[in-house]
Design a protein around this nucleic acid. Structure first.
Lengths: 190, 190
DNA sequence: ACCTGAACACCGTTCAAGT
DNA sequence: ACCTGAACACCGTTCAAGT
């Protein structure tokens, strides 16, 4: 039998598949190695151990989330764009639980790539708020606020039992925050 | 040497100490057993394996967070109470990272106790919104919205590099959401 | 009843050996 | 240059044996 060859791209995509299927927290080098059909020790020549593999998933996952959000906003105006983005964010979190969970990877030393991937995600929101008419500083603060709120809701949704109606709650949160962020009596007093 | 005896309370508090010190994700039965000075296999007669231990921490952690929030609101009025609670929430997350992380424990089958602990946490916020004047249904939605936003901000704060000013961002988020939740033009149209 | 130690399966990591 | 298999340390879990 010929020796299998592992590329970084194949490793990353296999790790994403396993993470979405079995959970990011329980991601394992052995599991990904089995998925690829190679020995577990092979992966150490492509990534810096388990932490490196998780970082790989976090970077790719954040980029995929960013793409999903960006695509959802195409062809929509300001306020509708934000709703579309929030919906896309939520759909991504549900359909790709492993990649979504990778988003809150605890900080590492070499988080350069991860930091820029995260900045790019925020930037999509900044663009929309700027188009709506907020000044740059406010647009950045609004973007981070909205991202925090969305993330928090989706993270807790995953945990809590589906006791109540998530659709209604999600819309209530988004509407209220949106109203507060665009409140002219506040934006004016800068 | 006399045989050590392990109580459920001692086990829980030892697990909390280790979780806050070394991280909830990396919590280990061996680590807690060492902390208690007993053999690792002993813990299996007190809790249902590692998952059971993590659930123990999650329940106790959620209760401790609830107490911290409740205490912070004592002697304050409606709007000041919410600010105090948000600040207490944040302080708890920073000072007890393990217990805070335990808050987003993935769902289990026996999450009865965990579910009620979570409901009690939300209830503190409901009380404040009701005192402010929101009707029960709106108070519940507002409480969940505020909790989601706070949690999301704090979870992302833990991850992201301290590139920007967290104090300003936190206040911006809280103020905006608060404004939107209490917007009379919206609350009226029910 | 509760704790121990041995045993087993599993995982991350290293490294000499192969190709 | 890259993959393998053996080796080691560590962890979760079970269980017969002690008290």
């Amino acid at each position: 039998m010929p020796k299998k060859r592992v590329s970084l791209a194949a490793l990353t995509s296999a790790a994403i598949v396993v993470a979405d299927r079995e959970g990011f927290e329980t991601l394992t080098l052995n599991g990904v190695a089995t998925e690829l059909g190679v020995a577990a020790s092979t992966l150490h020549s492509h990534t810096d151990g388990l932490d490196g593999l998780k970082t790989l998933v976090a970077v790719a996952g954040t980029r995929n989330l960013t793409e999903a959000i960006r695509n959802s906003a195409i062809g929509t105006s300001g306020l509708n764009a934000l709703t579309a983005m929030a919906t896309a964010y939520r759909t991504f979190a549900i359909e790709h639980p492993g990649q979504f969970a990778s988003t809150l990877l605890p900080p590492r030393s070499d988080l350069d790539e991860l930091a820029t991937a995260n900045a790019t995600l925020i930037e999509v929101f900044v663009l929309v708020y700027r188009a709506i008419g907020l000044e740059d500083k406010d647009a950045r603060l609004a973007a981070r606020a909205m991202r925090s709120a969305i993330h928090g809701f989706l993270a807790l949704q995953r945990t809590q039992a589906s006791a109540s109606d998530h659709d209604v709650e999600y819309r209530y949160l988004l509407d209220a925050l949106q109203r507060g962020l665009l409140d002219p009596t506040h934006v004016a007093d800068h």
